[in-house]
Design a protein around this nucleic acid. Structure first.
Lengths: 234, 234
DNA sequence: TAAAAAGTATGATATTTGTCATTGTAAAAT
DNA sequence: ATTTTACAATGACAAATATCATACTTTTTA
């Protein structure tokens, strides 16, 4: 539970600016404020795991997590990243099914949890909110379909180039121009769907070709145009 | 427009039994009946194409279509099949964005088109309907995520075995045990994400190993257990 | 019904990608 | 401070998959 001062903060919360929660009115926000709980998730720990039953929706106030799925052969795949301003677990509003993905913090996160009962009553009374939720999920589905095609039809090099550009778009760069999100070679391999060794070689190769520059785990994109061409596999 | 006798048929229509439309009440169905239009789509022609703006939802009364996406390198990928009882174009209810996929009939289809305005008013007044729509889309998203992981992490053989089993589940078999849906080698290649020649070789190989039996385009699964193991890439 | 077109099959070969073994290197724990 | 432990790099090789050329079949079209 929250203190009274904290409770009132939903109205100003960053998450509202980006997510479907922008469609909520004052009274809806207040009732959500009163039943939400906050928690901090340390880097490396799970927000939830594949097979868990969620009973509400998470709002991400800060930090980043990866959504992963375990393949039957034991390999883990990174499907998507979730960051500040995103909602997570929308399906639990209308379904009691287990979640299909695990959410692991790759930077310490602050999240709020809004119980299903609360969000469901808003959902039923506010058609704009439900329309926004649908629109978000449809957009995710559209991206997922593009993702499928990319995985199925493009070689590993293209997929890596494309991932780099997406991370650039989604997370931006620091003062020195390095991607703000920093991942291990294994994590990159798990985004692209290749062996870790292949990813290591590809990173060396991209560096030699001056497409990127590395400093430990940090990566700077040097030629977005060429990376774009590579991503399209022309 | 429809004749009066045809108009009344929404209530008994097959699509209602399977889709989100099951949540509609009598008066909602009647008003939909009054504004829907029917059309027949010949095998091989488009219901819509990538980039089109839909202005409503399609109900599939009969036939099958494939949803495809063109990759930037010119290859086309089959993302999903749509059959009797399915809805298509749900996103257009809440968004004016262009569709991301093309829908091509692979068996002549009978479809009804319900204009956006009509379905939107139902959507706003019937929370069960909107919940059902969300649930459907979330389920599609879940499948799409599994699909991504499969494409990224599994070899072509596994993907093919898995596709065969999915088609078996989704469409069933005829009296002689052949899959009811029949596709060209190229189409199979475009499901799995491989070259047509590779698909042809793989089909020969699966036949030799008595996993399947072919007769022209028709395919019969002979050993679902082994196919399942292959699909899991163990 | 002949000719054209589309679909299927197969070999030879090149390219891509994965696996296994080994070494180096940086980070974390004691 | 040093010993583990995780991560990164590289070589050698094997396996998977794509490409190109060609031939054969079936279906469509004229």
């Amino acid at each position: 539970m929250q203190s009274a001062t904290e409770m009132s903060k939903c109205e100003q919360c960053i998450v509202r600016k980006f997510s479907s929660l922008k469609s909520l009115d004052k009274s809806e926000l207040i009732s959500i404020s009163e039943c939400k709980t906050s928690q901090q998730i340390e880097k490396g720990s799970f927000l939830f795991e594949e097979g868990d039953h969620l009973n509400g929706v998470y709002c991400i106030k800060s930090g980043i997590c990866k959504l992963t799925k375990l393949a039957s052969n034991g390999k883990s795949h990174i499907v998507k990243f979730i960051k500040k301003g995103d909602l997570l677990g929308q399906r639990s509003i209308v379904s009691d099914d287990a979640v299909g993905l695990s959410a692991t913090a790759i930077e310490t996160m602050e999240v709020c949890f809004i119980p299903k009962s609360e969000i469901l009553s808003v959902f039923k009374n506010n058609a704009n909110f439900s329309a926004d939720i649908i629109n978000d999920i449809c957009y995710d589905l559209k991206l997922a379909n593009e993702h499928i095609v990319q995985m199925a039809q493009k070689p590993v090099k293209s997929r890596f180039a494309s991932s780099l550009l997406s991370l650039y778009e989604e997370f931006g760069v620091d003062k020195e121009g390095f991607l703000k999100i920093s991942l291990s070679r294994e994590e990159f391999a798990n985004i692209v769907g290749t062996a870790t060794e292949s990813m290591i070689r590809m990173i060396s190769d991209f560096s030699k070709k001056e497409l990127i520059e590395t400093e430990g785990k940090k990566i700077k994109l040097l030629n977005n145009v060429k990376l774009g061409l590579l991503a399209e596999d022309l």
